[in-house]
Simulated assay, not measured.
Amino acid sequence: MTRDSNQTRRFSRRKFIAASGGLGVAGLAGCTQSNTGGGSTAESTDGSYGGSGDSTDDGSDGGSGSLSGDINIAGSSTVFPLATAMAERFQSQHEGVDVSLQSTGSGGGFANYFCSGQTDFNNASRPIQPEEEDQCANNDIEPVEVKVATDALTVIVNNDNDWIGEGLTVEQLRELWSAESQPETWADVNADWPDEPLELYGPSEASGTFDYFIEAILGEEGPSHRQDYSPTEQDRTIIQGVNGSEYAMGYLGFAYYSENQDTVQAVPVENDEGNYVEPSLDTALSGEYNPLSRPLFTYPKVSALQEDHIAEFARFWLENSTDRAIVADEVGYVPLSDEEQSTMLSRLEEAAGSN
């Protein structure tokens, strides 16, 4: 819905994720957007924060609010809550800047918005693909790859699921989600499991989470992803689906699981050393949670970075990308290291200085 510009609605980041659950779209600073993935609209938000999260760096104008202009962002539902947290903070310091955010999926954002010239940034939970680079190039758009955090892609099951035990192997996950094997019941994968129909929920083909799951679990040369599941770009729908059935399973970004730990349970996954590891910020940072930990990106376009308010927002995001209070405690991802931040800032400054 549209927010009355004379009213301010305040949400904490945790309440916002729990309420929206990735419903798809936040219209910030009075903008209303439609969710191409689910067809619904999400409430406009202005963040209200306390503690160390407030002591963040602002733009080069010293927070005077002299910057003005629009910033349009589409892309990954996984990156969406992090982008929202940064946009809300930036707008609170620069009232003349309007940030419009859409959760369309990584691929949907590239194909339908960014590479066609409609947005300034595309968020992505996997790297840009060659065909997307070609589409951008054909429209004279030059993307800049900027890593903003690390995620732990999370497999979830119902709280009443007590048969998986210590966890799942990559081979079992591959069989569960493969279009070739396509088991109909849990017992089709393991005879000791219930002879009950599988109910599967996950992101749509437009999602970078979908793409990364294929790469990490099914393999680029492996079987295709099964199609007889409930696909969505609304992460809340995945949570609700798994919560609603004892025999359900799904997968999504860690931030959405972390806000719903009482509602569903995360499945430990066997790593390359043969240990079953639960997803967490610590295991993603250490590398123990493999193969499902992954980098998260935003892609500004070079031409947009020539505008002061857009370049300052990109800098602001990166300057706060090492802030554990925002990235980890509030949103639920692993912050950048100081070295990663320095590298990304150098890349951004080089692009912002391009003509």
Rank of each mutant, 00 (worst) to 15 (best):
F210M: 04
S178M: 02
L348H: 10
A325Y: 12
A248F: 10
W186H: 13
G27A: 07
G69W: 06
Y229K: 01
S337K: 08
P335E: 10
E175P: 02
W317G: 05
Y256Q: 05
C31D: 15
D235G: 09
G105K: 05
D211R: 11
E131S: 12
D160W: 02
Q265A: 14
Q234K: 11
A314H: 13
I164C: 15
W177D: 06
R9Y: 12
C31L: 11
I71W: 02
G63I: 09
S258L: 07
E221K: 14
E133N: 01
N123V: 12
D195V: 03
S354A: 11
A149Y: 13
H225T: 11
D308T: 10
G208T: 12
Q182S: 14
A351I: 00
A266G: 03
D57N: 14
V79P: 10
R14C: 01
R294D: 03
W317P: 02
D57P: 05
L101T: 02
S60F: 08
D120R: 00
L101R: 04
R9P: 06
G105H: 00
E196I: 09
N271S: 09
F210K: 03
L82W: 09
D46C: 08
A149N: 06
G51F: 05
P295C: 01
G96W: 08
P81L: 00
N320F: 11
R347G: 11
D98T: 13
M344Y: 08
S77G: 11
W186N: 02
G165Y: 03
P183Q: 11
N112D: 15
S116A: 08
S346W: 00
V334A: 00
C136Y: 01
A328T: 06
R347P: 02
A42I: 08
V267D: 12
A284V: 07
D323P: 08
N72S: 12
S116H: 06
P223N: 15
N355F: 10
W317L: 13
I239T: 12
S204I: 04
Q261G: 04
Y256L: 15
V155P: 00
A19C: 01
K15M: 05
I128T: 05
R174C: 06
E43M: 15
Y251E: 02
T8W: 14
G105A: 02
E288W: 07
P194D: 07
G27C: 01
P300G: 08
E95R: 15
D140W: 00
E340H: 13
G250N: 12
Q172G: 08
Y256A: 06
A266D: 01
T41V: 10
N260T: 04
A311Y: 07
R126F: 10
W193A: 03
D151G: 09
G62I: 14
V146K: 12
S60H: 13
S204N: 08
N138F: 15
Q265G: 14
V242R: 00
F80G: 04
I239L: 13
G287R: 12
G165K: 03
A206E: 08
A314K: 09
